[in-house]
Design a protein around this nucleic acid. Structure first.
Lengths: 210, 210
DNA sequence: TATATATTGTTGCAAAAGCAACATATTTTT
DNA sequence: AAAAATATGTTGCTTTTGCAACAATATATA
């Protein structure tokens, strides 16, 4: 989701030592393999060392919804947040997953340990980033019209990409999912926004005219 | 937001010691006072010891939106999540706020400290709870129709209240805000749901018939 | 390079939801 | 207890959105 790693600022040797202390395992999964079922009930902590994974829900009618797309450096575990017990983590590509008991992360041995401090700091920041991301999405979903959702989303994107010439980082189809609106209705609205001179766009390339 | 406290499982004496080590301050605010402006830029960590506070946004047009209602035991700080810089924390009642530098929380003195371990565990859990809450809201907002939003919300509520005879914990007016739909349209939909035999409701008292 | 698959773009029509403007009931304040 | 302020309940009308069914591009795969 974000681009910093949970081991940033800790040298490789210290990372090894920590993982050793934690009795960490590195597991390899093939694409579409189930990494974890019943997400809310695990006592383990997971780090994506390499590859991609998704948190998904299988609905009663058999459809699946991707709750969250995760990348290298992302973390998951029971804190990933849901009261439902029908959430799974599925490998979206071949991937390597580091896992250890969550308790190991929290409890400390007697001696001060810079690496451990830094790791907890990073974990807190990772989770905080997730919170920011969720918050942003809520802000967008809370807007009433499709146009207002788009404008809010474009606004955030413009702030992140530090330009008014923004590029949607996924397909327009995915964008309509993200905004939870009908794709064709969204396309229509984008057209109207062009007509009204609010934006000037071609596919995923959008110039904000305000 | 949730009912456990960030000092749960730590005895009063150890709490005092910790707060002392952290150079923590306890501040008192009157209702409607500004506790913190520019939420995303603070390096401090805040705990609501007593009272209520809201995270609010003041929109360009002067309207204010309550992003989050917080109670005794809740925490806030830059991790509270937003990329915007127009967020404030406002006292919703008289309240006492404990504050200290976030760094103090993360860094450790040499000696092993059970209380400190527990505190970090609690903080992680608090943030994780927030994540759960946000996640739930996103799930609801993602539903397309008002009926589906209501059904999903009722479902979560029923799970929490462990009964099909649920009670909406705030006004119907606030509910429409939470679901981000028009109040009158929501009322109409609730009526239709009664007509269809899906629910049987009177005001905030709702019986799920499914 | 041809073929298959995914993505983007468009439209008519029907359904859902928003808005505005009320009436009525309930709760809070004086 | 009266008055004021909130909250709930209702309706006609209009706008927005979703749905379905396409055509046209672009991208990936054999």
């Amino acid at each position: 989701m974000n681009d910093f790693m949970v081991f940033d600022g800790i040298n490789d040797n210290d990372v090894k030592k920590l993982l050793n202390e934690f009795n960490a395992l590195t597991l390899h999964f093939k694409k579409d393999a189930t990494i974890l079922s019943n997400v809310s009930n695990t006592s383990s902590f997971f780090i994506i060392q390499e590859g991609k994974a998704n948190i998904v829900r299988y609905n009663f009618n058999g459809t699946k919804t991707i709750i969250e797309k995760m990348d290298k450096g992302d973390i998951f575990g029971s804190f990933s947040g849901t009261i439902d017990d029908d959430l799974y983590v599925i490998a979206a590509s071949e991937c390597d997953i580091i896992t250890f008991e969550y308790n190991k992360l929290i409890s400390r041995s007697g001696k001060n340990n810079e690496a451990h401090n830094k790791l907890i700091d990073n974990v807190l920041n990772k989770i905080a980033d997730k919170l920011t991301y969720y918050n942003e999405r809520i802000e967008i979903l809370t807007e009433k019209t499709i146009r207002d959702k788009l404008l809010k989303y474009f606004g955030y994107l413009s702030k992140k990409q530090i330009t008014k010439a923004i590029v949607i980082p996924f397909t327009l189809s995915d964008l309509s999912d993200y905004l939870a609106v009908d794709r064709s209705a969204m396309m229509r609205e984008i057209k109207y926004m062009n007509d009204d001179g609010l934006i000037q766009s071609k596919g995923r390339y959008i110039n904000l005219k305000y």
